[in-house]
Amino acid sequence: MTGETLLEVEGLRVEFGASVAAVRGASLSVARGQTHCLVGESGCGKSVSALAIMNLLARGGRRGADKLSFAGIDLRGMSDREMARLRGDRMAMIFQEPMTSLNPAYTVGSQMAEVLRRHRGTSRRDALDRAAELLGRVGITAPGMRLGQFPHQLSGGLRQRVMIAMALMCDPELLIADEPTTALDVTVQAQILRLLAGLQRDLGLAILLITHDLGVVARVAHRVSVMYAGEVVESAATADLFARPTHPYTRGLLECVPVPGKVKRDQPLGSIPGVVPKVSPGFTGCGFRDRCAHANEICAGDIPRHRTDGDHEYLCRLPRDWAHAA
């Protein structure tokens, strides 16, 4: 079962109004039971892509795609009502803001139970039993007591655990986690990541993990997609990506990460000059060309998508071995 494609996205486009193209033809696929990391800097369209997949875009966001399928179901023509039947049941999502993502007016138990009640018609009592079981599974002690508590009585780390447990209520096939650890402090971050990795192993869950932390990627991802200015510029198996980064942006990104033993005292860390461009609809060519040391006039035209052995894809005019041949 593992390895079979669960979520397949091709040519995903999201626009807000006439002036912002947040996602421009992004493609990625998530295999069953695997963790796929989507990385990139703030504003590159990672979160918007995830929300677009779930059809949760804020008002004013328009979505289009050449292909958007989940477990063989075409999500493109689905009404919001039909989509709601899938969300929370077969595909779940957790967010970056654990402090505000739970409703302050209801208890943890009631918010968790309603997922199962909605999708399975389970009785309140059985749904609460399942909620308690899952709170225990995500490492919360005294789950019975927590069920009766309100969100403001829990810490950020606990709230994110509750969000994770809530996402698991219906045993989903896919969990989209949008920077689930960004708002938490470092020790809690590690716990949450370990928890997600454990859940994935034990439940055979596919995870689309959005992050900008390459350290996280190296630890948990089976496959990585790097996003830049609304496009997936490179996608590869994790080890392959770290060993042979090909897109100039990916290379730049990896140079920004301090590696113990490699960083010398008094030597500045790498950084990519310039800022992410604001991209409007109708923009053509490579989004990275203004910041790229290898850019030439070809980069303003259509960029070929290279696919090399072992499913390593990248979007650049440069040949596959340009960096490694030297």
Binding site: M54, L56, A58, D80, R81, M83, A84, R85, L86, R87, G88, D89, A92, M93, F95, E97, T100, S101, L102, N103, P104, E114, V115, R118, H119, M163, M166
Partner: peptide
């Protein structure tokens, strides 16, 4: 426009709920 409504939508709840 709050985060908990986004969560409620992500849970697949009905519009009425």
């Amino acid at each position: 426009s709050s985060d908990y409504i986004r969560t409620a939508r992500a849970k697949g709840l009905s519009r009425a709920s």
